[in-house]
């Protein structure tokens, strides 16, 4: 669009959005209270949140949360550096790129989640199996952002810095890092989000513990309140994480842009 959006308009949209979500919550709540929909199938929101509160103080469920968080963090902490570094190396070295990009492209288009049974055959059902599955799932999403991050560095700026006598480490620190920051951050965000996707699916598929397992069990035993409470937890946490990281990304992008103009 040609004209700039005024901040006033953006805030108004936020207000509307909040109103929309609130309205949805209200409809949900009343539909259960007035039994438009069988509350056994769709418990009112208030009961779900009450249940969530109870679950969060239940030490068994807290143990499951800890396990899921540990799995996600492990996968995240391994795959983000790995994926970004692979992306950087590929982008920096034309030889490597030529060698690996066909394989990479093929593997990127292959749906990874259907290989979960193979991971189980290979590693059994345990912590490492889930973590490795999540790593493989997210790896191929992060690598392209790593490549794009390097490619987003304006070569003119590097040449300029060289001509002013900047050392290699100065170039990395002062030019590469800030210029590539927005895309690096989006790699971080995608890594976290898809690690969570992978871990939760792996837990639901085969596991004896973790949030995903509980969700599947509660679904199978028609324990709708617990089920919805856990679903709500996952929903709120992922949305919050995604929005926060996205806000940081936007901030970094704006800083890079304004930096490039000075």
């Amino acid at each position: 669009m040609t004209h700039q959006l005024s901040t006033q308009k953006i805030w108004l949209a936020r207000l509307w959005r909040a109103g929309f979500v609130l309205g949805l919550a209200l409809v949900w709540e009343t539909s259960g209270r007035l039994a438009w929909i069988d509350p056994e199938l769709l418990p009112p929101l208030s009961r779900i949140f009450k249940m969530l509160g109870r679950l969060l103080s239940d030490h068994r469920f807290r143990g499951d949360i800890v396990i899921t968080v540990l799995e996600c963090l492990t996968a995240f902490l391994i795959v983000v550096p790995l994926g970004l570094f692979s992306g950087f190396s590929l982008a920096e070295s034309p030889k490597l790129y030529k060698l690996f990009s066909p394989v990479l492209q093929l593997l990127m288009t292959v749906p990874k989640s259907i290989f979960l049974p193979v991971f189980i055959l290979l590693f059994g059902i345990d912590f490492s199996e889930k973590v490795i599955f999540a790593i493989v799932l997210s790896y191929f999403i992060i690598v392209p952002t790593g490549i794009a991050a390097v490619q987003s560095i304006p070569s003119g700026l590097v040449a300029m810095a060289r001509s002013f006598g900047a050392t290699q480490s100065q170039i990395y620190l002062r030019i590469y890092l800030p210029c590539a920051m927005p895309l690096i951050l989006s790699g971080v965000r995608l890594g976290l989000i898809f690690s969570m996707h992978g871990i939760i699916f792996a837990e639901m598929y085969a596991s004896s513990e973790g949030i995903g397992r509980n969700i599947l069990n509660w679904g199978e035993s028609f324990d709708m309140e617990r089920l919805f409470a856990a679903v709500m937890l996952v929903l709120i946490v992922t949305v919050l994480i995604n929005e926060t990281l996205q806000a940081i990304e936007t901030y970094a992008r704006r800083r890079t842009l304004s930096g490039a103009m000075h």
Partner: peptide
């Protein structure tokens, strides 16, 4: 899009 929709499947 960030939400692992698979959690909705049991529902």
């Amino acid at each position: 899009i960030a939400v692992p929709l698979v959690v909705l499947y049991p529902v």
